[in-house]
Design a protein around this nucleic acid. Sequence first.
DNA 1: GATGACCTGTGA
DNA 2: TCACAGGTCATC
Length: 266
Amino acid sequence: VPEILEVEQARAVLAEHALGRRVAGVHAPDAWYLKRGASAATVGAALGGRAFVAARRRGKLLLLDTDGGGPTLGLHLGMSGRVLVDVGDGQAVLEGGDPLVYASNRDVVEWRRFGVRFADGGAFYLRDPRRLGAVEIEPDEDRLGPDAFDLSADHLARILGRSKAPAKAVLMNQARVAGLGNLLVDESLYRGGIDPARTAATVTARSRARLLRAIRDTLRILGARGGSHTGDLPRVAGAPCPRDGAPLRRGRVAGRTTYWCPDHQT
DNA sequence: GATGACCTGTGA
DNA sequence: TCACAGGTCATC
């Protein structure tokens, strides 16, 4: 659930339910899900006996710090991952926010690709039908650009200015700015009036300012509405643009299905 | 950079 | 059966 808004919801749930509880063991039935050489044994040894002291996020990467100078646990939700918490009385508490539109929201036990059990009886799990998420110890946070919530005008100018890629590709590149995904980028470009395929470096200073405002509005407004799929831009080819009525286009930009208004997005 | 690959579920 | 899905990675 994968864009920055959903990951932030997951982070908040973990901050509320996963901190300060001693880890009794890990649930890691899927070796493929553990990256960078980690195994159920090494992750269990790394976390066992420790407690999480902070739930952080950088872009779409979730980070759980442990006490006593222990390792940081990194979680990726992939395309269909959600965090769910078992508070200990047998009642599962789902991640806040909307259910996934395209992924299943059924709670199939086999879809729990990873979990952490606490000594007090509770646990949290990462449920991910498609298995495109990941778990790692001590993830490299610096492969990611600044978090999209912290995007500055200077940084946006820098990453757009030196790229011949489509504007959409730059915004989707997690090394440039972390957290924006397919839906949020489409919505931001729609609100900012920029053609997704527009060569990044040709975006004028005036358009850049509009884009920055649009990104911030998108994060704030869609965040308040509950998720990345609550945007104003209909993801329907031929549907009338809510702003000017022109039939919306559907195409492929930066390798992803893209919707835009050919009229006001230039 | 664009492309395909990864993996699996859903709905037409 | 097929196209498609809100992500990321290696490869040309």
